[in-house]
Design a binder for these strands. Structure first.
Lengths: 107, 107
DNA sequence: CAGCATCCTTCAGGATACTG
DNA sequence: CAGTATCCTGAAGGATGCTG
């Protein structure tokens, strides 16, 4: 059973496995400001397609970072929000924002 | 001239453009502990190939994150280290390490 | 509205061989 | 040792159409 490489020893690699992806970071950034509907995310995450947004939301849901709430209405309404674990990523995002601003000012 | 999307407005996207890549994060992590030779990086960045390591180092050099020092010897000796800008990424890496550890302990 | 199903393209990254 | 040069594959992601 050498296929248990799902859990790397190194902490950074764990983090990368969960959010080491451009789209995921952008989705989390937008969810940090509060609950969003699917269509809102489609608009706020510039350039993402339905398929990609869906698959990433599913993956993050499975990882316990995002929760999905379906309202049994017509037309359908689905809201996504960060779980406590997902929200705990905020420090990482914050430092990325801070660094990005500093880097930009040096250009 | 709509091809000027090289500099996104959003700080997070700037950061992602420079280190939004699994390999780059791992390379930076290893350089944070000090100057490394090419072969040392090949070993410490588990699983990376020569070509990929080279291309990422070049990109990070161009971005001003990494400096490359060539010693005119035989056999060749090349050392890579973080620039001040590159080192300033440490808080991001630190928060990723911290988060990774916390997430792991919840599994 | 919030998706799922398909098909198709692209290119990051891997494998291999060669060199100053 | 530290690369460069090719070739090649897979899978991430884009485009489009359909539906509960």
């Amino acid at each position: 059973m050498e296929n248990m490489k799902k859990v790397p020893e190194c902490p950074v690699e764990i983090t990368l496995q969960l959010i080491g992806d451009k789209w995921k970071v952008l989705i989390i950034r937008d969810l940090l400001t509060g609950t969003k509907r699917f269509s809102e995310l489609m608009r706020s995450v510039t350039g993402i397609t339905q398929k990609v947004l869906t698959s990433h939301l599913r993956a993050m849901e499975a990882a316990g970072l995002v929760s999905r709430k379906v309202y049994p209405e017509v037309p359908p309404k689905v809201e996504y929000s960060l779980t406590e674990t997902g929200y705990s990523l905020k420090p990482i995002l914050d430092s990325m924002v801070l660094w990005g601003m500093q880097y930009k000012s040096k250009l």
